[in-house]
Amino acid sequence: MIGILLFLMISVSVAYSAATGSTTAVSNAIVSCGGDAVSLAITLAGGMAVWGGIMKIAEKSGLTEKLTALLRPALKLIFRGLKKDSAALKAIAMNVSANLLGLGNAATPLGIEAMKRLEEEERPEAEATPNMVKLAVINACSAELIPTTVAVMRAKAGSAAPMEILPCVLAVSFASLVVALIAAEIGFMGKKR
């Protein structure tokens, strides 16, 4: 899918530049885009390394586990109908806390684990259960507490205060997550759960 998207982007660019006479700019872009991507990746790598280091300390000291325990009661309100000692709920709590801490690459395997546990516990046939839909929706609406990647990019571009966007990011993430969850709930109204 991404291949087709890029094919479209490149064909549109070339056709558009041929029509408007901006071919010089496009050939310059082709020459320099690789270098741009490498310098972007190096900047991001630095920021990601620092965050990964800090979060590893949080993980080893048991801080992430504490957050998981803190989240469980709240998550019970969203994911209903699960047993008290549900392994799925535990996996969901771990997935959500990894997301909150910005551990995207730890969050995905945990989320997939949670999805599989839900499948075992709820035994759907071919159709997703409400809890499965909600888990996917929560993960598709990022709920990151500290937007580190964006802050690193803002710092690189010379921002006076790269982290000033934090309150906005928190407010918008939370609001859009609520909208998405409400949309999910509305979709299940009047249908078999």
Binding site: M9, I10, V12, V14, I30, A37, A41
Partner: peptide
Amino acid sequence: LVFLSLGVGTLRASGA
């Protein structure tokens, strides 16, 4: 990132 930078870079440079 390199591949996407090619797509986005040309799209921007062309004015599209």
